[in-house]
Simulated scan of single mutants.
Amino acid sequence: MLVLAAAAALPACSTTRASDASDLVDAGAAVPGLRLDMRYAGSDNFVGMPVRGYEAPRCLLLRPAAEALAAVARDLQSDGYALQVFDCYRPQRAVGHFVEWARGPDDPTSKQRPYPDVDKSALLGDYIAETSGHSRGLTLDLTLARCEAGACAPIDMGTPFDFFDERAHTDSPRITAQQRANRERLRDAMVRHGFRNYPLEWWHYTLDRGEPQPPLLDVPVR
Rank of each mutant, 00 (worst) to 15 (best):
C88I: 00
A29K: 14
R35K: 13
R52S: 02
W101L: 12
W203P: 08
M38N: 11
A129S: 14
A8V: 11
A18T: 11
P57D: 08
P220W: 02
A151I: 15
L207I: 07
R90L: 03
Y89F: 07
G53K: 00
I128V: 11
Q178F: 13
P214N: 12
D106E: 14
Q84F: 00
S172F: 07
K111G: 11
S19Q: 10
R196I: 14
M1F: 15
E55P: 04
I155T: 03
L207D: 05
A71G: 07
A41T: 07
P91L: 00
P57Y: 11
A71Y: 01
S132K: 06
A189C: 03
F46P: 06
D37Y: 01
D106T: 11
P114E: 08
E184G: 08
D165T: 12
D218A: 00
A5H: 12
A73T: 03
R74H: 05
R35P: 00
G125R: 01
L36W: 03
L207V: 05
G104S: 09
L186G: 02
P220G: 05
A65P: 04
L200I: 13
D87E: 11
L124S: 09
D26G: 03
R222S: 05
A27N: 02
E184F: 07
P214K: 09
P108G: 05
